[in-house]
Amino acid sequence: MSARHHLVTSQLENISWKVLEQYRDVIKEMIRGKSGIYALYNRDKLYYVGLASNLMTRLNQHLKDRHKRKWDKFSVYLTKKDEHMKELESLFLRIMKPTGNKVIGKFGGSVNLRQQLNKSIKSADDDKRAGLLGGAIARNRRRSVTRNTRGTTVLAGLVGRKIGLRAYYKDYYYFATLTVNGKIRFDGDVFESPTAAAKMIIEGRSVSGWNFWRYKDKKSGDWVPLANLRK
């Protein structure tokens, strides 16, 4: 069994800045040349968080730079060099928002989901309004959903032959076909996503087509959610 590797190898917490000044050699012996994350506190409140390749040098700098006399205690967390350390520092900054840090942490490859959330809420509101008003508004909403999903065949490549689909809604069974090219044929129309096809049946409600439609599993003989094809 391979040995387990820990990110943090040792720590020194809530140490007065006076210890750093009066016992500099002792502290230096412990952390000189060591990398890690450090935190500065002012009256037990987090003031600043940073990442340093040499913790001793960085702490000495903060005794003289713009942070001078703005902190009275420090903590250091010695770590092994890791590719995620910078992101870890950014995570701390975004969550804790220390008053001494001027910049907010950034994530290089992260996607901000706020815009997607806004679109999803708007879509859910449109579905709800269409369901309440019904009639032509509901029909136009269903057509709009169908148009917006064209060109994004999310089911392509999931099956090697066409399979039958079934859905149960309000005491009635609905049947459709999933084609080899990933399209769903239902009631004379062709849909490129399971949700678009489901919304032709369910008016004015948010629905996941992956769970709404089911297919017959060969091994068990049960009708299982279409989502199982993605596993």
Score class of each variant (00 low, 15 high):
R143T: 04
S193P: 10
G204N: 05
R139C: 08
I163W: 00
K216R: 15
T146M: 13
W223E: 03
Y173S: 11
T177E: 07
G164C: 07
G209Y: 03
F175T: 14
K219I: 13
K219Q: 08
R142F: 07
D189W: 10
T179V: 09
E192D: 10
R166T: 12
F175E: 09
A167C: 14
Y169W: 14
V207R: 12
K199E: 08
V190N: 06
S193G: 08
T152D: 07
V154M: 04
R205M: 07
K183Q: 13
D217F: 05
Y173A: 05
D187A: 15
I201H: 03
N148P: 02
L165Y: 02
W223F: 13
Y173G: 02
V180H: 02
Y168K: 07
W213T: 08
A196T: 11
I163V: 15
I163K: 04
G151D: 01
I202K: 08
R141M: 10
V190I: 15
R143S: 05
Y174K: 09
L158F: 15
N211G: 10
N181D: 15
T179M: 02
I184V: 11
V207I: 15
Y169C: 10
K199L: 09
F175M: 12
G151V: 02
N140M: 15
Y168G: 05
S220Y: 03
R185M: 06
A167R: 05
I201V: 14
R142G: 06
D189G: 10
F186A: 09
R143L: 07
R214P: 04
K219D: 06
S193H: 04
T177N: 10
A176I: 03
Y168A: 04
V145Y: 05
L165K: 09
A156S: 12
M200N: 13
T152C: 13
T177W: 04
S144I: 02
V190K: 03
I202E: 03
E203H: 15
L165S: 03
D222C: 06
K170T: 11
T177G: 07
G188W: 00
Y172M: 12
D222P: 03
F175Q: 11
S193M: 04
K170P: 01
A156Y: 13
I202V: 15
D171P: 04
R141H: 14
V180R: 08
S144Y: 08
I201A: 01
D189Q: 15
T179R: 07
T195D: 00
S206I: 07
A156R: 13
A176V: 06
F175N: 13
T146G: 11
N211R: 10
V159I: 11
T146E: 14
K162F: 05
N140Q: 13
L178D: 00
T195W: 01
F212W: 06
